[in-house]
Simulated scan of single mutants.
Amino acid sequence: MTSTELPAKLAEIRDDFLALEQPDRLLLLLEFAGELPALPARYEEHPDLLERVVECQSPVFMFVEVDDDAGKSVHLYATAPRESPTTRGFASILAQGLDGLSTEQVLAVPDDYPLSIGLTKAVSPLRIRGMTAMLARTKRRLRETAV
């Protein structure tokens, strides 16, 4: 998948980041942190259903859900502490960018997507690795549920 073949929402997010100077990219990331979708009640009431992303410095938990509809729409739910805005921002980017895509579309997202949004100079490699791990975990869950 070339960058022009990215799903529209992920391409738009990437382009929004790349259109900004480094300091403004961090501000956009903070905006995403504030927009992390809330967990549905079924997960708030059963946090044991969420999987910890151990590669993240902050405690991040996530769950990948696939609708039974014909398109097999994917939904990523994540939680991260408000005191960890970088991690929350990355989780929010993925939750919003992957929402509603088909399983095939999510699996085709380049593994290095987190490197493509222009934050490698603004945040530590460890933080980028956390977002990469969230994407990898999402794909792994989709492969497991497809079997």
Rank of each mutant, 00 (worst) to 15 (best):
Ser3Phe: 09
Glu5Met: 14
Pro7Trp: 06
Lys9Asn: 11
Ile13Thr: 07
Asp15Val: 00
Asp16Leu: 10
Ala19Cys: 05
Leu20Tyr: 04
Leu20Gln: 09
Glu21Asp: 14
Gln22Ile: 13
Pro23Gly: 09
Pro23Tyr: 05
Asp24His: 09
Arg25Cys: 04
Leu26Asp: 00
Leu29Asn: 01
Glu31Leu: 08
Phe32Pro: 02
Ala33Ser: 15
Gly34Leu: 10
Glu35Lys: 14
Leu36Phe: 01
Pro37Leu: 04
Pro37Met: 08
Ala41Thr: 13
Arg42Asp: 12
Glu45Asp: 14
His46Leu: 07
Pro47Gln: 11
Arg52Asn: 05
Arg52Ile: 05
Glu55Arg: 04
Gln57Thr: 08
Ser58Pro: 04
Val60Ser: 03
Met62His: 11
Met62Glu: 07
Val66Tyr: 03
Asp69Pro: 05
Ala70Phe: 04
Thr79Leu: 01
Thr79Trp: 02
Pro81Arg: 07
Pro81Leu: 12
Arg82Thr: 14
Arg82Val: 13
Arg82Ile: 12
Glu83Tyr: 06
Glu83Ala: 15
Ser84Gln: 04
Thr86Met: 06
Thr86Phe: 01
Arg88Gln: 03
Ala91Ile: 03
Ser92Cys: 05
Gly97Val: 06
Leu98Tyr: 07
Gly100Val: 08
Ser102Ala: 12
Glu104Asp: 15
Gln105His: 07
Val106Thr: 11
Val106Phe: 09
Asp111Lys: 11
Asp111Arg: 10
Pro114Met: 04
Ser116Lys: 14
Ile117Pro: 05
Gly118Trp: 00
Gly118Gln: 04
Lys121Ser: 15
Lys121Asn: 15
Arg127Met: 00
Ile128His: 03
Arg129His: 12
Gly130Tyr: 02
Met131Glu: 08
Thr132Met: 11
Ala133His: 02
Leu135Met: 09
Ala136Arg: 13
Thr138Gly: 08
Lys139Phe: 09
Arg140Asn: 08
Arg141Ile: 07
Arg141Thr: 08
Glu144Trp: 00
Ala146Thr: 12
Ala146Ile: 04
Ala146Pro: 01
Val147Pro: 01
Val147His: 10
